[in-house]
Design a protein around this nucleic acid. Structure first.
Length: 633
DNA sequence: GAATCGTCTGTTTTT
DNA sequence: CAGACGATTC
């Protein structure tokens, strides 16, 4: 306790009733949260009654570990989405869904939506498809059912069909993990009561980034006991595009009557220079609650500004600086990070670091689990669990080629739909009774292919109870002849094989960690997990998007690509509030730095295959010159 | 039904 | 530039 300042101690000692901690960047928020949980445990609250909701899986994992190390106790720490899936796995039958539902990612749900467009005879162009996707997503995040989302117009009827089809597939999408959970709890008071009794102390991190569904979920779960402990910072709200409403944090005291509000405004992370520069920047936001963070860590170095000719030079500059800092100041690579606005910007940095032999790790990025070979295999695994998972069926049925092309599949799917049967069991019946669907005749090749396919799945399903997860995966790879399928493309074969090995390693590692590993649980975890694994043995420079940097800190930060149209991003240009969000994003990036911050931009940059002239970001001009110094190569 | 070639088209950010 | 998609041919 002696390490805490007065406001921090007040927050830590808070026990019952609603509390909001307005925690500025670097104000010791994590420390408060951990100590507060520890305190609850000390006064005898059972760990099982504590639920901590964080924004990322990584943060959840960290919180679990710290509590375990500190108090040897296991609390439930998860993201809103994992929490939703946990609740649904247990209670979704109240809504008439199967318990073994699949979780569809963006890719899967887009495919499903596309098939709906085709069913309805609409042209499935990207534009309209995307529009419908985001309409549906937005509606769910705002807790609107298809009926509520619009009166019989096209979009809401697409939403309606989409939702029906998901259910037919025994699947839910990401947004459903929140939407259906809230729906379930609202429509079944006894279920709600069960969870309210289970988790009597609720902690919500990054409260400024909750959307309406998440906010409602938090409210529901705490409605009986009001023990909600929310932490957030409106200046770091950067997810409005996902439906987040930072107003939630401003409305906290009216939402939760009798709420205590504690402000943490002393920064323990950054030098005064970095902090004042960030303060100056964020003060350009009109729509903002005034606050001023201060630091007692001393002035420190000036912020390094570097103007590169192009993105290649920008990357070499950073690589060179990294080597120099490492040599001269003996600072490890783990202490350094590169932040950018878009994932595509990582490319030149990868090249530069590679050529300078600097090991790096990309946090986030194109997820391992989104790679085709991984998704293919996971789709097979899903089908072992689910009879109805249409998207996984379509993904795997002709892979390797089994003589079932688009037109045959269209017919099969339509017939299954007509008969209202899960896709796999329909196919099985179809083979037994060729007259099942008149007008659907399978050629000998297709028939053989389908029968091969089904018997692979049947065998795997029969073996499942006797095999460990990793052996089941191995068996899947063998039986489906997946590796020989990969040989068709010699270019990518090696990479993909390595990825598959990694998946196997992951499965082995996972089943060793779990007490009772189940396939369903494994699949669930993988579909919710985005971050790829890193080797803790080797120190590496971390590269990530600004969004991914939230909640982290590094002694040395290279914040790159500060150019108009990139930051603020071109899509935010005509919208004042969107520009303010970009500014908050910039603020988040800057305030991650503890000792030294570099801001770089390039004059020319290759985009869409052509060289573009880039103007320095307006945000650079908003940082007073007294805090910065120009750097040369 | 499968393979190949060309055309288009697009890029935020993520659970 | 790269990946996705469609048209064309076998």
């Amino acid at each position: 306790m002696s390490e805490l300042n007065e406001q921090q101690s007040r927050a830590v000692l808070h026990i019952e009733g609603p509390l909001l901690v307005l925690a500025g960047a670097g104000s010791g928020k994590t420390r408060v949260v951990i100590h507060r949980i520890a305190h609850l445990l000390e006064i005898g609250i059972p760990p099982a009654e504590i639920l901590a909701v964080t924004f990322t899986n990584k943060a959840a994992e960290e919180m679990r570990n710290r509590i375990r190390n500190l108090k040897n106790a296991f609390i439930l720490a998860s993201t809103f989405h994992s929490l939703g899936s946990r609740i649904l796995r247990e209670s979704i039958h109240h809504l008439g869904y199967e318990t073994n539902f699949s979780i569809y990612d963006e890719d899967d749900s887009e495919k499903l939506l596309k098939s709906i467009f085709q069913d309805k005879g609409l042209s499935a162009e990207k534009g309209p498809l995307k529009e419908a996707r985001s309409f549906i997503s937005r509606s769910k995040n705002d807790l609107l059912t298809p009926e509520q989302s619009g009166s019989g117009d096209l979009l809401s009827s697409l939403y309606q069909s989409y939702q029906e089809k998901l259910k037919e597939c025994h699947a839910v999408d990401f947004d459903d993990l929140l939407f259906l959970t809230v729906h379930l709890l609202q429509s079944h008071p006894s279920v709600l009561e069960m969870y309210q009794n289970r988790w009597r102390f609720l902690l919500i991190d990054e409260y400024q980034d909750t959307n309406f569904a998440q906010y409602t979920l938090a409210k529901l779960l705490s409605a009986s006991h009001h023990n909600i402990f929310a932490v957030g910072d409106p200046d770091q709200s950067i997810y409005s595009w996902r439906g987040a409403r930072y107003q939630n944090i401003l409305n906290f005291s009216s939402d939760f009557p009798g709420a205590t509000i504690i402000t943490l405004d002393q920064n323990y992370r950054s030098t005064t220079t970095i902090l004042e520069a960030a303060n100056a920047l964020i003060e350009h936001n009109e729509n903002r609650f005034k606050k001023h963070l201060w630091s007692s860590l001393g002035e420190g170095d000036k912020i390094g500004l570097y103007t590169a000719m192009n993105e290649k030079q920008e990357a070499s500059f950073v690589a060179m600086q990294i080597n120099q800092i490492k040599r001269r100041n003996s600072i490890g690579l783990n202490e350094m990070a590169i932040f950018y606005r878009t994932n595509a910007q990582s490319r030149p940095f990868e090249d530069a670091l590679l050529s300078q032999k600097i090991p790096y790790t990309i946090i986030g990025g194109v997820s391992f689990y989104q790679r085709k070979e991984i998704k293919d295999l996971l789709a097979y695994l899903r089908l072992i669990v689910s009879e109805a998972d249409l998207i996984s069926f379509l993904r795997t049925i002709n892979l390797p080629k089994r003589g079932l092309g688009p037109s045959t599949l269209d017919k099969i799917v339509a017939a299954a739909q007509e008969h209202q049967r899960p896709i796999l069991s329909f196919c099985r019946s179809l083979l037994e009774d060729p007259n099942l669907a008149p007008g659907l005749k399978l050629g000998p090749k297709a028939k053989q292919g389908l029968s091969d396919y089904l018997s692979i799945l049947d065998t795997l399903r029969k073996q499942q109870p006797y095999l460990s997860l990793s052996d089941l995966l191995k068996e899947t790879i063998t039986r489906t002849r997946y590796l020989s399928y990969l040989q068709e493309d010699k270019e990518t074969e090696q990479d993909k094989k390595e990825n598959i090995d990694e998946l196997l390693a992951k499965a082995i590692e996972w089943e060793q960690e779990q007490e009772s590993p189940s396939l369903t649980q494994f699949l669930e975890e993988l579909s919710l997990k985005t971050s790829s694994r890193e080797d803790p043995e080797i120190p590496t420079v971390k590269m990530m998007t600004l969004h991914n940097s939230k909640g982290l800190e590094f002694p040395i930060v290279f914040f790159v690509g500060l150019e108009e149209d990139l930051l603020p991003h071109i899509n935010s240009k005509d919208d004042a509030s969107a520009v303010e969000e970009e500014r908050r994003l910039c603020y988040v990036g800057m305030t991650r730095a503890k000792r030294k911050l570099y801001l770089t931009h390039a004059v020319y940059r290759y985009m869409w295959g052509t060289e573009r002239y880039m103007r320095p970001s307006r945000f650079l001009k908003e940082i007073p010159a007294e805090y910065t110094e120009k750097k040369e190569f």
